[in-house]
């Protein structure tokens, strides 16, 4: 032991030989950079470059209005309605999906019965369907030749249809949202501490109070995050909407229309950025809320 090494902070010996400390550190950093290079290249090539180009394109002038496409979206009724419709539809779909599938998921997580695994498999099967198939299924149900039209024609002499309207979109989006919520809620219920419910019951809480005070707060993070994912998926769903009709005024179809029909790249880019930003905000908000609650678990 030398006197220097006994110094309280050991600073002198550290400073006297800087090269031996920095050398390995620098080499380590270099290796880390080298190992991260492929990821960086991919990030730049497929995300940073196209996305910054998209953002800049959106700032370009819209041919019809002559001002920036972002400004056009905010000032033209047609785009605002489309924006509101898309957000509103996605919001309602998410809420309804969480309400329906939350209850079903809780039931499936708690009950044991014959054929349960088969039922769960059937319920989650739509996850495997692409949007276009979902659209097709909605048409078979509520389209011109659909089951509802056939039945109403036979009963009342007229064809009842909903497939080609927002109602059709609603049904289609709900269809692919429900399986997501069910699987997430089932997993969340499995993780719920059953003794919390038992404690609440021992204090006199009835089923409704246990649900309100223990179960819903317990699975709230899962409900929030799965709801946000439903919202994001519905915001960007293209296949289903395209199958049901290109005249529906929702953002993904608008982007497609501006791009292919009018070659209005500025507007297509601006709409894409708006769509992306709203979706990202919803997801990060949900993550934040859910994170705050998750921290409170026992």
């Amino acid at each position: 032991m030398t006197a220097a090494s006994k110094q309280p902070f050991g600073a002198a010996s550290y400073l006297s030989r800087p090269s031996t400390m920095v050398g390995p550190a620098r080499r380590k950093r270099f290796i880390a950079l080298f190992a991260l290079l492929p990821a960086l290249v991919i990030f730049c090539a497929f995300w940073l470059l196209p996305f910054s180009r998209l953002i800049m394109m959106g700032a370009g002038a819209d041919p019809s209005s002559g001002v920036s496409a972002y400004l056009t979206i905010l000032t033209h009724r047609q785009y605002l309605i489309s924006l509101a419709t898309t957000v509103g539809l996605s919001l309602v779909v998410s809420l309804v999906a969480v309400a329906i599938a939350g209850v079903a998921g809780f039931f499936l997580a708690r009950q044991r019965f014959f054929g349960k695994s088969i039922l769960v498999a059937i319920l989650t099967f739509p996850l495997a369907f692409p949007g276009v198939v979902v659209g097709f299924l909605v048409i078979m149900l509520g389209g011109r030749q659909g089951a509802l039209a056939q039945t109403s024609l036979w009963l009342f002499g007229e064809r009842w249809m909903f497939a080609y309207s927002l109602a059709g979109l609603f049904i289609g989006y709900l269809y692919f949202s429900i399986p997501r919520v069910i699987t997430t809620v089932m997993a969340a219920c499995d993780n719920l501490d059953q003794s919390l419910e038992e404690a609440a019951r021992s204090l006199g809480a009835n089923t409704w109070q246990v649900t309100k005070d223990v179960i819903v707060p317990g699975i709230a993070p899962a409900l929030l995050s799965t709801g946000a994912i439903c919202f994001a998926t519905s915001m960007g769903a293209f296949g289903t909407a395209f199958t049901l009709g290109t005249r529906l005024s929702i953002l993904p179809l608008n982007i497609y229309g501006e791009f292919t029909n009018y070659a209005n790249f500025a507007m297509a880019a601006a709409l894409s950025v708006v769509l992306g930003v709203i979706t990202w905000m919803a997801l990060s908000l949900a993550r934040r809320l859910a994170g705050g609650n998750l921290g409170a678990s026992v």
Partner: peptide, 20 residues
């Protein structure tokens, strides 16, 4: 009678406190 009507107080190993 189910537990909620038995007028019992219960203490669990894992505390079972309501985190919210």
């Amino acid at each position: 009678l189910p537990i909620e009507q038995r007028d019992v107080g219960m203490v669990f190993q894992n505390y079972a406190l309501f985190p919210n």
